[in-house]
Amino acid sequence: EHKIILYENPNFTGKKMEIIDDDVPSFHAHGYQEKVSSVRVQSGTWVGYQYPGYRGLQYLLEKGDYKDSSDFGAPHPQVQSVRR
């Protein structure tokens, strides 16, 4: 199983989107239009992308907690697509 939770604010606060065993080419299409400032990967390895359609900067997200976007190497809290 692959499970990831994306949070609007640092330290796992604010609006969140939970994804289980699915690739998401556009967070906006899924109704999530917030920034991504923290991430909790509960299982599996994911790649987050700066822009929709798996474009832009890529961020490797392995199991663990990323309490701020800088923890996974993002210069800005901008992640708009993700895949396993």
Results as ranks from 00 to 15, higher is better:
67 K>C: 07
20 I>N: 15
54 Y>Q: 06
21 D>K: 06
29 A>L: 13
66 Y>E: 01
64 G>E: 04
63 K>N: 03
45 T>R: 06
17 M>W: 08
38 S>H: 05
41 V>L: 01
7 Y>H: 02
60 L>I: 11
29 A>K: 12
69 S>C: 14
77 P>T: 07
69 S>G: 10
34 E>R: 10
57 L>C: 15
25 P>D: 13
38 S>C: 13
7 Y>N: 02
71 D>R: 11
7 Y>S: 01
63 K>A: 09
16 K>N: 00
9 N>E: 11
12 F>N: 08
69 S>L: 14
32 Y>M: 13
69 S>V: 13
8 E>M: 06
9 N>G: 14
28 H>K: 09
42 Q>A: 13
16 K>V: 08
15 K>S: 09
58 Q>E: 15
71 D>S: 14
76 H>V: 13
74 A>Y: 01
76 H>L: 13
23 D>H: 03
67 K>I: 15
63 K>H: 06
27 F>G: 01
71 D>H: 14
49 Y>E: 00
69 S>M: 15
57 L>I: 13
36 V>T: 13
69 S>E: 09
44 G>E: 01
50 Q>S: 05
42 Q>D: 07
46 W>C: 06
70 S>F: 12
36 V>P: 09
5 I>K: 15
58 Q>C: 09
42 Q>N: 08
10 P>Y: 04
32 Y>R: 11
28 H>Y: 14
47 V>Y: 11
29 A>H: 13
28 H>P: 14
77 P>W: 08
50 Q>P: 04
76 H>D: 12
24 V>F: 03
65 D>R: 03
84 R>S: 03
66 Y>F: 05
46 W>M: 02
44 G>C: 01
31 G>R: 06
2 H>Y: 06
38 S>W: 00
39 V>P: 08
68 D>G: 13
77 P>R: 08
32 Y>D: 13
31 G>P: 10
76 H>A: 12
60 L>H: 15
23 D>C: 00
19 I>N: 14
26 S>I: 01
29 A>V: 12
32 Y>I: 15
30 H>M: 12
3 K>Q: 07
62 E>W: 06
62 E>T: 09
27 F>Q: 01
54 Y>G: 03
34 E>V: 12
30 H>A: 14
50 Q>T: 06
35 K>V: 10
37 S>W: 05
5 I>E: 08
40 R>C: 09
40 R>A: 08
84 R>G: 01
66 Y>H: 04
84 R>N: 00
36 V>L: 00
60 L>K: 13
15 K>E: 05
23 D>Y: 03
33 Q>T: 12
18 E>T: 10
21 D>N: 10
47 V>R: 02
62 E>I: 10
77 P>M: 06
10 P>I: 07
50 Q>C: 01
12 F>A: 11
25 P>G: 05
65 D>C: 07
28 H>T: 13
42 Q>G: 11
34 E>W: 14
36 V>Q: 04
18 E>N: 04
33 Q>H: 15
24 V>I: 12
38 S>P: 01
70 S>R: 11
22 D>Q: 12
50 Q>A: 02
9 N>Y: 05
84 R>M: 06
61 L>K: 12
76 H>Q: 12
38 S>G: 03
38 S>I: 02
37 S>A: 12
45 T>W: 01
46 W>N: 04
29 A>Y: 13
2 H>N: 08
23 D>S: 03
23 D>R: 02
17 M>A: 01
26 S>D: 15
49 Y>P: 00
23 D>N: 04
58 Q>P: 09
17 M>V: 11
62 E>M: 04
70 S>I: 11
61 L>D: 04
23 D>P: 00
55 R>F: 03
29 A>W: 09
46 W>R: 00
35 K>F: 07
47 V>S: 03
76 H>G: 09
28 H>F: 10
41 V>P: 03
69 S>D: 11
54 Y>I: 00
24 V>Y: 11
3 K>N: 14
20 I>D: 13
31 G>W: 04
42 Q>L: 15
28 H>E: 14
39 V>S: 01
70 S>C: 11
7 Y>K: 06
6 L>N: 01
37 S>H: 13
50 Q>D: 01
78 Q>N: 13
79 V>T: 08
6 L>H: 00
59 Y>E: 09
59 Y>Q: 04
43 S>N: 01
55 R>S: 10
12 F>R: 12
11 N>A: 13
1 E>D: 02
8 E>R: 04
70 S>K: 14
46 W>Q: 01
22 D>N: 10
3 K>E: 08
34 E>Q: 15
31 G>V: 00
42 Q>S: 13
66 Y>N: 15
37 S>V: 09
28 H>A: 15
24 V>L: 12
18 E>Q: 06
3 K>T: 02
36 V>G: 03
22 D>I: 07
23 D>M: 02
50 Q>N: 02
44 G>A: 02
74 A>R: 07
2 H>D: 08
26 S>P: 01
30 H>T: 14
58 Q>M: 09
6 L>P: 02
58 Q>S: 14
16 K>S: 11
30 H>D: 07
62 E>R: 11
